[in-house]
């Protein structure tokens, strides 16, 4: 059961210390509500990526508790990780498209992995590509696309499973200002469709352009949590 204003992501004094190295996150408490769009900002090494990695169970917290959709991730078994990841879409700085597969096949990957019935795959891939405006390029190979188009394909791949949460780490890191704006508009678009979006970035211009909640990390701690400013 899920009601509207329940936190979809909740960190309760979460700390993360890597095997070798200092503490990447220390006692971070944070609540992200359903349908929110949040920027995660901070200097390089502040812990932004670490926070996202904890949410998709690529890393485990050393201390504290982390809930996604009411589920305590600290108690998730290794065998449950794939299923939990399918509920979260991920977009990275590098789109990571498989060069030997068409755009359509790349976007279909999360469905394939989840053993979705073949009939529904095509329909859902088309819908996802339509969302990012790339339906006409479905049969193209990734190398023949521009950087911005490639990133949009990776967004389509992230949302083809209809995840409730979308995480993005420097999604515009490789793109110029114009394309960055275009990608951000895709995220706004998805957010309007009730997807919770968390974007880690240090692109200050972009944040100014899209005034949303901004969580500023500094040395692994939340320094400032600025609510969305109404434009």
């Amino acid at each position: 059961m899920h009601c509207e204003f329940v936190a979809v992501i909740r960190l309760d004094r979460v700390s993360k210390r890597y095997a070798e190295g200092a503490e990447a996150l220390s006692e971070v408490s944070l609540e992200i509500e359903n349908g929110e769009m949040v920027f995660l900002t901070g200097h390089s090494g502040a812990g932004k990526s670490t926070l996202l990695k904890l949410i998709i169970l690529m890393e485990r917290p050393t201390q504290g508790q982390l809930f996604v959709d009411g589920r305590n991730l600290g108690q998730a078994r290794v065998s449950e990780i794939p299923a939990l990841r399918r509920q979260i879409g991920v977009v990275l700085q590098n789109p990571h498209l498989l060069p030997d597969r068409s755009v359509h096949e790349n976007v279909a990957l999360p469905l394939l992995v989840a053993d979705q019935p073949v009939r529904s795959v095509d329909r859902r891939v088309r819908a996802a590509l339509d969302l990012v405006g790339l339906e006409p390029l479905a049969q193209r190979m990734p190398v023949s696309l521009s950087a911005g188009e490639q990133q949009r394909v990776s967004i389509a791949r992230a949302v083809v499973n209809r995840p409730r949460i979308l995480l993005a780490d420097e999604p515009t890191g490789n793109l110029d200002a114009e394309l960055s704006t275009e990608i951000m508009q895709q995220f706004m678009h998805l957010n309007a469709a009730e997807v919770t979006v968390v974007i880690a970035t240090h692109d200050v211009l972009l944040i100014k352009q899209f005034p949303r909640r901004n969580v500023l990390l500094r040395n692994g701690q939340v320094e400032r949590d600025q609510p969305a400013t109404t434009p």
Partner: peptide
């Protein structure tokens, strides 16, 4: 390698 990493990222089970 890339394929394996992406599959794990989108929730592919080890068996898959």
């Amino acid at each position: 390698r890339l394929e394996i990493v992406v599959m794990q990222l989108v929730g592919g089970s080890p068996a898959f």
